[in-house]
Design a protein around this nucleic acid. Structure first.
Lengths: 347, 347
DNA sequence: AACGACTCCTTGATCGTTCCAATCCAGCTG
DNA sequence: CAGCTGGATTGGAACGATCAAGGAGTCGTT
């Protein structure tokens, strides 16, 4: 009687079996089937086996909408994707999304992408939260003082940030980040070990906390080695042209033998300048980039680059999400991971 | 009475308002509120206005799970992401996903990413379909004779493919693809217009229908121009090294003045060889790649490349999905779009 | 023999929405 | 004025799962 007549008619796709269908066929109650799926321990082994077999036979999977409605959870994690824009190297995001999807799948979650609107950055979040479409969010762009983290905190929406709360160290939300300073320190020490002493820095303008963090790693390593840094640093915007320009100026004025850059994009610029000047990367002048992007890997001269452990970031984020959603007291509020160095021909 | 006491207690996030809450406050029935949201035309203007105001006041959004359960649709589109793997240039996928998310948002859909397992390529699809978690799928990797399209067709799962059904021209599912041959023809004709006559081809092995398609564009353009092609083509696997090797051989044996490549990866290899031989791309030898990937854009010498109209692909896919899900007769089964040429310094 | 404790399973209610059929009401017709 | 029409609104049922109680049945204890 749960399978009324009109449901099986016509060429319209036949509805999948329900809990009640399985129950009837197995000669047990709905709840028992439910338990077979969600709490197998509650059933006697014999019953469990029988129910499982019927489930298999009928190809039953719990209807997600019904389950979501009842349990008030969707097993979905929302991830905002910025509007498609040209040029910006988001190959890193690609790697991150892949690992996030893989990792959260293991924890029983799927990833829901939603469109971001630059005009109204929190609109998408609000919508999904109010309609209880996702259980939590992963927020990735916490760098510029964007209002998302604050807004989500205020509205008590569960979320984990990829990126430290730079502007508000007192923020209480969980976050995972990569230690940029440790990365550039790694790069600089690698160059020091190779015998370089005049190691230049090309980074971003002062208003980027991430940029300042990365710069600090270079500066610290140089100071620890007792080396001077005056005239060896420059701050430009993140583009190939700017990187090329900065490299040209530094080469003319300070004669460095190596460059550490805040991004692969800037490093590309350096390589460009070297190329024009007929200097061989790696032999004449060493170059290290940041992010280990696609370009670093395929460039005719492989670019040594600081590589973020995005797999570990994804794992940490998913773990934080699980803690958050199980209403456990958060184990820790922030996790800081250390990058590695992918060494190639350019250094 | 719909708002029982315990719901508003404690620090546990207060439940969002429901249809019934809005109805009570507005002094109308649930159904009327529902109509205000979904079928405004059915309401008298005055009523509509009043209900809308209450909705606004209370910050009401329909609960997605409940709606999904009742309507048997989730407004979600499933997209499988291949397991994270190193090296393969999927920056194109990145661009595609962005535009797909944007486009489907306009049509009221979100994109659900799910993990793919190489062992069991259809497992993820089956799961989501049986649990009615998504309304349809977008399948992107139809190149190698993978079983997904066939499996989905067989199980009557709604889906649209990005990529032609090469192995089965009789397949009836909707698809959208980019005309690779037209792209390489465009590239070749661009080079012909620049005065080149000895234009070489570096492509993939014969078992790739996409590769053969792209090759055909070059071949056709050369034939149409009455130019010989013997000794000017080579087939290798898709890697920088292979491209570099092929370029070296071709330069030695056939003295081409230009290269058309089946991918940016191969074009990178060509540039590498030119670099080693101190030949200037663009002035000495012209090079054209395929996909307009990140590397093409930032390479010290900008790489001319065939650019797939991924935005248009996304739009066409979403349109096909809408047709499919509204149970309209599909307007057309397949859509073939023409790429453009992004001209840079290398040609 | 009665009782509680425990295991295993079942029953009714519920989540929040939309579908369906029924009802109300004003305006028109004959 | 009854009868009809059609637009606006309503109440009950259903979607398919889980939750919260409650019943059998078995066992050991008093």
């Amino acid at each position: 009687m749960s399978r009324t007549e009109p449901r099986a008619t016509g060429f319209i796709p036949v509805s999948p079996p329900t809990l009640a269908d399985v129950a009837e066929r197995a000669g047990v109650s709905r709840q028992t089937v439910s338990n077979a799926v969600n709490n197998p321990d509650l059933l006697r082994p014999g019953t469990l086996e029988r129910v499982r077999q019927v489930i298999e036979e009928m190809g039953y999977s719990p209807n997600r909408a019904a389950r979501n409605l009842r349990t008030r959870s969707s097993q979905l994690i929302g991830l905002r994707v910025a509007p498609a824009q040209e040029g910006t190297a988001n190959a890193m995001m690609d790697r991150f999304v892949h690992t996030l999807v893989d990792t959260s799948a293991e924890a029983g979650y799927h990833v829901l992408l939603f469109a971001g609107d630059n005009e109204d950055p929190v609109g998408g979040y609000e919508n999904l939260m109010r309609s209880t479409a996702v259980d939590a969010f992963v927020v990735t762009d916490t760098y510029l003082g964007n209002p998302q983290a604050a807004w989500l905190s205020e509205h008590r929406a569960p979320f984990v940030a990829f990126g430290r709360p730079w502007d508000d160290p007192a923020a209480t939300h969980p976050w995972v980040d990569v230690d940029g300073a440790a990365g550039t320190r790694l790069a600089t020490e690698h160059l020091l070990a190779k015998g370089h002493t005049r190691i230049a820095w090309i980074g971003w303008r002062k208003d980027s906390p991430i940029g300042e963090d990365r710069r600090a790693g270079w500066l610290g390593a140089m100071h620890d080695a007792g080396l001077p840094t005056t005239g060896l640093a420059s701050r430009v915007e993140d583009s190939v042209q700017s990187g090329a320009g900065a490299a040209a100026v530094l080469l003319d004025e300070s004669a460095p033998t190596a460059f550490v850059c805040a991004s692969d994009t800037l490093a590309m610029g350096v390589l460009h300048t070297l190329w024009i000047r007929q200097l061989a990367p790696g032999t004449d002048i060493a170059v290290v980039g940041f992010d280990d992007s696609q370009v670093a890997q395929v460039f005719p001269v492989g670019l040594t680059s600081v590589r973020q452990p995005l797999e570990d970031v994804a794992v940490a984020i998913v773990r934080a999400l699980e803690d958050l959603l199980s209403h456990l007291p958060a184990t820790t509020s922030g996790v800081l991971l250390t990058p590695t160095l992918a060494v190639r021909e350019s250094s």
